[in-house]
Amino acid sequence: MKVIAILIIVLTGGLLIYGVEEMPDWGDPNSPASSHVSPKYIQEALEKTATPNMVTAVLGDYRGYDTMGETAVIFTAGIGCILMLRKKRKGEGD
């Protein structure tokens, strides 16, 4: 068990370190992540959604569908816990 775990760690870690080499430097304002999609959020969020907080604008509007999924996840977890843990109370029957 431990041997397998260490083997998997070495493989995963090796792959991750291998991948770091060609990553853009940390905090580079011209990296693709900061220059392709996100500038439009920063520039347009206020005008289009009238929300000064860009994170809120993206969370609630541009990617609101993701947020709907997120609430569904919480609902799922809640109902799941009810399903697993709820015991039938005495005298309750139908």
Binding site: A33, D66, E70, I74, A77, C81
Partner: peptide, 27 residues
């Protein structure tokens, strides 16, 4: 000016991912 604000998108994604992680822990 785009350069004066950090990128909001990863923050949005991680708000969702944090919630997912909590839900998984709960289950």
């Amino acid at each position: 000016d785009v350069a004066s604000y950090i990128n909001p998108l990863p923050h949005v994604l991680m708000l969702t991912a944090i919630v997912v992680s909590i839900a998984t822990t709960g289950v």
